[in-house]
Structures are given as structure tokens and as C-alpha cells.
Nucleic acid binder design. Sequence first.
DNA 1: GACCTGCTGCGGGATG
Length: 754
Amino acid sequence: MTGTQSNSFSLLDKRIQQYIWSEKWEALRDTQELAIPAILTGNIDTIISAATAAGKTEAAFLPALSYLLSVDPNGLIIYIGPLKALINDQFLRLEKLCALLEIPVWPWHGDISSSIKSKFRKNPKGVLLITPESLEATLFNQGSSLNGIFSRLLFVIIDELHIFIGSERGKQLQSLLHRIEVIRSKRIIRIGLSATLGDMSLAAEFMCPNRTDAVAFIESKNDTKDLLIKVRGFEEPAHTICKPSSSLTNIIEAVDIDADVDVTSKNTSKQPAIAPAQIATDLFDVMRGSNNLIFPNSRADVELFTNKLQELCEFNKVPNEFWPHHGNLSKELRSETEEALKQTEHPATAICTSTLELGIDIGSVKSVAQIYPPPSVASLKQRLGRSGRRDNEPEILRGYVVEKEFGNDNPSLADDLRLSTLEFTACISLLIEKWFEPPVLNGLHLSTLIQQILSAIGQDGGIYAGPLYQLLCSNGAPFSGITKCDFLDLLSNLGKKELLMQDSSGLLLHGRVGESIVNHFSFYAAFSSPAEFRIVAGGTTLGTLPVKMMLKKGQRILFAGRTWSVEDIDDDKKVIFVQRARGGVPPAFIGGRGRVHTKVRQRMYELLLSEDTPSYLDNMAIKFLVQARSFFKKKELEGAKFIDQGEQVTLLTWLGDNANEALSCLLGFHGISAIASGPTIEVQKRGSSVDSVIKVLHVISHSDLPNVDLLLADASNIEREKWDWALSPGMLRQSYASLYLDLPEAIDWATQVA
DNA sequence: GACCTGCTGCGGGATG
């Protein structure tokens, strides 16, 4: 490469240019060309978006390091990554270049020894690679020396920006960045790296609230890949237990366990589902011989399919090629699977949850299987991005849907309308159009506000209410929607819960409960994890299991793809002792589905109206689609808003879960008992008629919006985030509503109908 | 309500 071919190249520090020559790069990537001049100005926030990891990190670091060398060789760049594994990867990538430039690189997360951390604190310069949680710990514990640590901070680089948008952890990150700027009394330039973002302005709003107009957007133009799709349908006989709608039944039946037989077959009228076995057989045939990822949607199903696929290998006397990967498996078992994927001598396929959806390097993957509809279009896109990573290789998606055979028993509307097939097809058609769910930016995340209050008190050794409000809730601060009145209400509630106390001058300090919370390292994470049992076999920990159901000695469970029998349970130490056994049921993970977006539901409806048959459906899947359409036609459901079913009325809204839940709340507020159910709302008539429901919808569409306190007055079980338990009932309702209720969409529907 | 992510600094004692 020469300077004449690339203007951007010549702008870089000479030593970095030499490094690029010595690495024999043929050319800078398009994102790098564009990012270099923007970042080198040293005063523009930048978002770099490209599909794969190809060169995004370099697009940020080459100019950032050049800038550092020219402006302040003792300056500091902070890189924030969501995963420890990612920080380790980036450390290896940066080490060589930075050694050449004589710039130190500091990896910093929970597994890094404290001697490295204290060395950095003594000489805070170079590149710091850190997690949000470790950054939180630094702010909390190093209050008096923070000015020194951040005094020469030049850039903050945020990797996998899209992972943070719209979550508790993202709110925490915004707050940390804001607190650092307050310490420095100056703007810190932010650089975000991300997979393709649907709406760049939302990402900018997240990364730089209140100063979005100055953000430079850099999007790769080389992101298009060929996409091959096949969706296979499987029909579950009427007399068997059908996934996924009956997963809860499975779990409840799995509780009674003294018998030796597989408990799911104890019920004489129901046989275990046969579709999973058929799907496993198909996967065994098409996946063997190459590297692939298989995504069922739950940890229980990861165990189920791993078990079936490993049995098939055994039965056919071939070496095992199938490995499980999910968040409850121990680090050792997970890295075993990761190693199997990375090595190139033997083919390997992982059956996994979203653990392998994130950006850890697992080598190249030929195809991705999705069993049952994906949780969202965004997650389907992310999963698919793991295949075809080499140039000229297509992305390959193999989908599997299961529908119940029409039998004698009363089928539900969901069965008749073949909702699984419709939802999966809708997701694929939106994926092809490059649409995916936008992140929700308006969540209040008041749970995280509590954490940040406790952390700010720790940082300063106590703080008065006024400056605290100024820090966290004023204009441009991360919780700027909170009024002074709400804030005081929150503080007084935190006092009642003994999270806070005030000294005689009014200074806010940690209360008795607050003290014990902040003194445990679990304080630093903004999100919570459920209590879990360790599973131990012969002295080796296999992993952890969130046990919410009763467990008994002698029970069989599936874990890490194998069957175990429970030998002993230590409730105090939270340990389950097991040994190998044969036959078993999936572990009792409780689960439903994620939340479906309105756009997906409307595409499902459009699919019912259309007569096109997508070419990627196999004959069985086409049969499901034809059945759904003929039922839709026979029942004259086009344009229908209500189905009168005797005791209840079904409202056919075809809206997303947030809108349906909001409409249910509104109906409840007006005295009508309603519950959101998939694309519909079930209304109990209780003697009234469809007309009276329409009247209420009319009232809803013509009234002012009732406040959230009244709407959620009867709602229980709405605590979702880590410190939600410490919110007053009113603030808890506000926080919940901001995340899970779409009132405008609900009212819009009521207006159309009434 | 799918799934996932993450987590201190110190002081004492042993060792080189």
C-alpha cells in the first residue's frame, strides 16, 4: 500500500503506517478510510457500523492511537467491551501494534489479577480495555483519585454498541460516561462500534444524548451477502405433547419423579412429542461433516437436542460432532465446545442459546439452524451473521417449525391459524427486507438509578440531594426525565428501605441495608441473576441450574447433553450432587416467549391475506400455510376485529405484545377483564355483549390517557430489574410501563375499531 | 416474561 492510493493512510502516524506495511495489508477497508479523518480531528463523536468484525476495531484504534501519539503520548484511551472474552481477544490484537508504539495496553475485568490493576492506577496511560462493571467498581472505589486516573483521557471506544442500547446495562454505561465527564468537567469524545444498526440516529441518541447532531456516521457499504433459506415443517400427532406451547406442562409433569420411567409418558393419554426426534434426525443428516450452529430457543431444548444428536452419533457408530453451549454450563464445558468449533481437524456443530450469538470468534460456520420461530427478527439476523463469514460464502439458514395435527380435541385459534409457521415466515420476510426491531430507548430503568445513587455516594463519601439530582437527573444526564418531586419521593423510599440515611446536615449516606449491598462485589453489575444450584458429579462442577421447581433425590435430569440422577441436594450450599444415568427429562427452566413486535404480527396478518408461497418453505410448511389461509377464509377473519366465543370475546388486534398488554390494561381500567394472548386479546364477557366491549373501546379512544398508577393499580408481579424491589409502587409502575406498555398503539387500534 | 452479559481492594503470609 502507498500513500498515493489512500489519503487516509497518509494521515496516520508514521510508525502505524510501517506496521500496516509489515502486516502486508492490501488496502484499508471502507470504514477505515472514512473513520481515520473523522477520528483524527479529535473532536467528533463517531459511530462505525459494519456487519462483521472485519476491521472495525482497527478503524477506531488506528486513528485514535495516531491522535494520542501526536497530541499527548501519555494520554489514555478507554475501550469498553461487553464480554470478558472480547476484551481478551482485543488485547491480543492490540498488543503487537502498541508494543511497537511503546503504548501500554491494560486488560481489566474480573479475571485480571489485581497487581495489573494497581500498576495501571499508578500510571494511568495507554489503552485501558474494561467492562462497564469494572469501570463502575473503579468509580465507586477510587473516588479520591479519579481526577488523576482520567486526567489525560482522550477517547472512549464502545464495542458492540447495539448490545447496550435499551437495557439496564446500557443505562448504567450512559451514566458512567456522564459521571466521567462531570469528573473531568469536559466532553469526552465517544466512538461506537456496532453490527449493522437499523436506525443510526437511535444509536447516536443512546451514545451521545443531547449532542446527536454532531455525530459522524460511518457505515460499511460491503455488507451484502447471498442468503440461502430452507424451512421444514413437522406435524406433531394430536395425541402427543406438542412443543413449544406445552413446555410448561412438561415441566410440571416432570416434578413427580420417584418412578423409573420417563415421566412425560406417565400420562396415558399423551405420548412424548415425536417432532423433536424427527428434527434431530434431519439435523444429523444435514449438519454432519461441517461446522454449524443450532439455535433452539431455550436451555432446556439445547439439552434435549444435544442429547438426541449425540445418541444418533452413538447409534450410527460415528464420532460425536455435536456439542452444547449455554449460560448454565461451566466455563470448562463451554470452552470445550468453543475449542471443538475452532479446531479444524474434525467438524463440529454447537447447539446453543444466545451465548454464541455475540461476537466471540468461533471460526467459520457453514450454516445456522433455527428451531421454532426466533425470539425476534433482530436476533435471527444476529444468529445468521455467524455463518458465511468468509468472502464469497453465502449465509445459510435452516428453519424448523412444528404444528399440531388436526385431531379430535378442541384446537385453539393458535393451532388453527398455524401461528408458529406464520411467525417464522413473517420474521424471514422482514429479515429479507432488512427490517428489524428498533431498540427501545425510552425505558426509565429506575432500578439502575438506584444503583447509580448508591455508587455516587460511595464515590464522594456522601453527597447532598441537590448535587445528586444535578449529577444524575438534570438536562443531559442519563435520568433527565425524572422530576425533582419524583426524585425526592425515590430518596425517601430508599430511606424507608434503609438503603440510604441522612446525617444531621442532610448529607446522604448508605443506610444499613445499602451498606451491605455496596460492600459485596455483586453491586457493580446493573443486572441481576437468579439464585442457582451448582451441579456436581464426582467432585466436578458441571455447571449451574436455576431451580425454581421442586427437586427430589432419584430424579433424572438432562444436563450438558447427558442424563444424570440426583443423588443428594444441599439446600444451604445450593449444590445438587448427581451421577450418570440413562433416560431423563430436560431441566426445569421456566420459560415463555420473548415479546413480539407489532411489525411481525402485521406481517403475519399480511401473509394470511396473500396468496404467494415463499419458495423457501418445504411441502409440509406450505401445507401449514395453506391450512392457515383456508381457516382464515372459512371463518371470514379478513378485517375481523372480534370473534364471539360464548363466554369470551377474542379481539383480533394483530398488534405486538406491548400494545396488546397496554390495551388489556385500558380495558381493565374500564371494568372489562382482558388478557393479552399472542396476536389477540381475550376478553371475559361476564354477561355483557360484544357491543358493550365496542362501547368501552369508544370511550378509551375519546378519553384522556389515565395515568399509569391507575392503569397498573391491580397489576402484580411487575418487578423486572435488579433494584425494582426498592422502588415505591408508583415509580415501579412508571418504570414497568416505560418498558412494556405501548399506549399510543393501543389507543390507535381502539380508535380504528370504535 | 426467551436468552445473555458481569463482579473489589486490601492485608496477611509465604516465597524468592
